[in-house]
């Protein structure tokens, strides 16, 4: 379960998020949409404690993040798989070392890590690229490696920041399918930030629309498509 209550955040006195509240039940999938700069990425960073909100409370399952110290937050983050907008692959590590990184920091034995890494590489249909470096890969391949790294420790919560930015339709389709498979495998709760509203609708139980730091709508997908502002956004009508 993911829950936000009255979350607000300002940078240099400029409010970026105002009074955001929504809940994603365990195993559910929320599609978070909105124009660029609406604060979607910031919501995800607040959810994993990378950014602390100025106001409001955040829960991941039964844990409230607010009172935790940075070191306690590290344990909570172990339950999250995060896919970053800019890949965020470590460019000085090989693909296999990148994917195994979360497990290596949990001090799992090397052979167990290697086996798990190979399983994930097979699942994202890139079985042979383990020894290569991220800079040698195409955008779509990097995104799939991100997906493998984010899910390598079977996280019960998945946060995906625009997982298909800048990719062609075929690759986009493939990424969303992989995402859904990996989520189902762990029965994970997920939030997906994306502009691909056509792909989001069938895989999300709920949709939330952000507009300039305010939550316009949050509710089941069936209701969302009836909501005038959500529909206008999805159909690309200027406000």
């Amino acid at each position: 379960m993911i829950r936000l209550e009255g979350v607000g955040k300002a940078f240099d006195g400029q409010p970026v998020l105002r009074d955001i509240s929504f809940t994603v039940p365990a195993g559910g999938t929320l599609g978070l949409i909105g124009a660029g700069g609406a604060g979607k990425s910031l919501v995800l960073k607040i959810l994993c404690g990378l950014v602390r909100p100025d106001a409001g409370r955040v829960w991941l399952d039964d844990t409230e993040l607010g009172p935790l110290s940075e070191r306690e937050l590290m344990d909570v983050r172990g339950r999250i798989g995060m896919i970053f907008q800019n890949y965020a692959l470590f460019d000085y590590l090989t693909v296999a070392e990148n994917i195994g990184f979360p497990l290596a920091r949990m001090q799992r034995p090397a052979d167990a890590i290697a086996a798990r890494v190979q399983t994930r590489l097979d699942q994202v249909h890139l079985p042979d690229i383990g020894p290569r470096y991220p800079r040698e890969l195409s955008g779509g391949m990097k995104k799939r490696v991100c997906l493998a790294r984010a899910t390598v420790h079977d996280p019960p919560i998945m946060l995906c920041d625009d997982p298909t930015a800048g990719l062609d339709p075929v690759t986009t389709n493939r990424i969303f399918r992989l995402l859904k498979d990996l989520q189902a495998q762990n029965d994970a709760t997920a939030i997906i930030v994306s502009h691909e509203t056509g792909y989001l609708r069938p895989i999300c139980d709920a949709i939330a629309l952000l507009d300039r730091g305010r939550l316009v709508f949050a509710g089941p997908t069936a209701e969302a498509v009836e909501h005038p502002e959500v529909r206008a956004f999805m159909e690309g009508e200027p406000p």
């Binding site: 960073k45 994993c48 990378l50 940075e70 070191r71 590290m74 983050r77 172990g78 999250i80 995060m82 970053f84 907008q85 800019n86 890949y87 965020a88 692959l89 470590f90 460019d91 990184f101 979360p102 920091r105 949990m106």
Partner: peptide, 17 residues
């Protein structure tokens, strides 16, 4: 460079302060 490409966020996500 690691900060602006979100690699530092990825470190913080994975018990690597």
């Amino acid at each position: 460079s690691m900060v602006v490409t979100e690699q530092v966020d990825a470190l913080r996500m994975n018990r690597a302060p």
